[in-house]
Simulated assay, not measured.
Amino acid sequence: MDFNTLREWLTLENIMKLIQEYRALGPLPGIFLPMLEAFLPFLPLFLFIMANASAFGLWVGFLYSWIGACAGAFIVFIVFRKYGQKRFFSFLQRHSQVQKLMGWVERHGFGPLFILLCFPFTPSAVVNIVAGLSKINTAQYMLAVLSGKMVMIFIISFIGYDIRSLITQPLRTAIVAVVIFLLWYIGKRIELRLNSKSKKNHQLS
């Protein structure tokens, strides 16, 4: 199967059929597909999330998608954090655009990463690689991934589960907006604590 054939095959209906076909494996198909997108960013994550919500229900589908997407992001991050200095990956750090992105991530930390990861069409694979190559605190990165992807995946799951409710039930839409703000605010507070602790540790050392 070539790339164009694969792209044509990747529809919501076909993905749902695939999940149903391997339903006997329990949560594995629902977790594996979003995880795979972290390594193959051309795959349509939003379709995987919508298919999970339709196949498993809103909350279970959301949970499977969130676990898979976060696990994939962490694996990519850890690989580039550990092996980014090796010869195989060294060319990436020499690239001027990568260096700019690394500096941007290191300077701004949690906030912008959280916002970027809230959007479904952000090239999260690039974000994970750049974060792994940068000197950003691992806890800050993990916090941004967990909270940002939670928002993004819940919104897509919500749309995939009941797309009409966004229009017919504006209260639900308002609740989603409030949740986004609360997650951002809580994340910023935690980031401030992490920064203060790292400064204290640096001063003590």
Rank of each mutant, 00 (worst) to 15 (best):
S196Y: 00
I155W: 06
I175H: 03
T173S: 12
R172G: 13
L166K: 01
R193S: 11
R189L: 13
S198P: 02
I190P: 11
D162T: 06
F181D: 03
N195M: 13
M152R: 04
I156R: 09
I159E: 05
M150K: 01
A174F: 12
K188Q: 10
T173L: 15
E191P: 05
Q203Y: 08
R193G: 14
R172I: 02
Y185M: 13
S157Q: 02
V179T: 09
V179D: 05
L182D: 03
L171I: 10
I180Y: 12
K188E: 10
V151F: 15
G187W: 11
F181A: 15
D162S: 14
R172H: 09
Y161K: 01
F154N: 12
S198Y: 02
G187Q: 11
R193A: 11
Y185T: 13
I156K: 08
I175R: 04
E191K: 06
Q203C: 01
Y185V: 13
R164G: 01
I155K: 01
S196I: 00
M152A: 12
Y161P: 01
M152C: 14
P170R: 07
T173G: 05
I180E: 04
R193I: 06
I175M: 07
S198T: 02
F158P: 00
L183E: 02
I180H: 08
I153Q: 10
I163C: 01
A174C: 04
A174N: 05
A177F: 09
V178F: 13
L182E: 05
I167S: 07
L182Q: 09
Q203R: 13
I159N: 04
V178Q: 08
F181Q: 11
S165N: 04
K200S: 08
H202R: 14
K199M: 10
Y185N: 14
R193E: 11
F181I: 14
S157D: 05
K188A: 04
L183Q: 06
I163H: 04
L166E: 01
T168V: 12
I190W: 15
Q169G: 00
K199C: 02
V176E: 06
Q169K: 05
T173D: 02
Q169V: 01
I159S: 11
I167V: 11
R172C: 00
S198A: 06
K199E: 12
H202S: 12
V151C: 11
I155A: 08
E191Y: 07
I186V: 15
M152Y: 04
E191V: 03
I163D: 02
Y161A: 09
I163Y: 15
M152P: 03
L192I: 02
R172L: 09
S196C: 00
I163A: 14
W184N: 06
E191G: 04
V151L: 14
L182K: 08
S198V: 01
K197S: 07
I159W: 14
M152N: 13
L183G: 02
F154A: 10
K188G: 05
H202M: 07
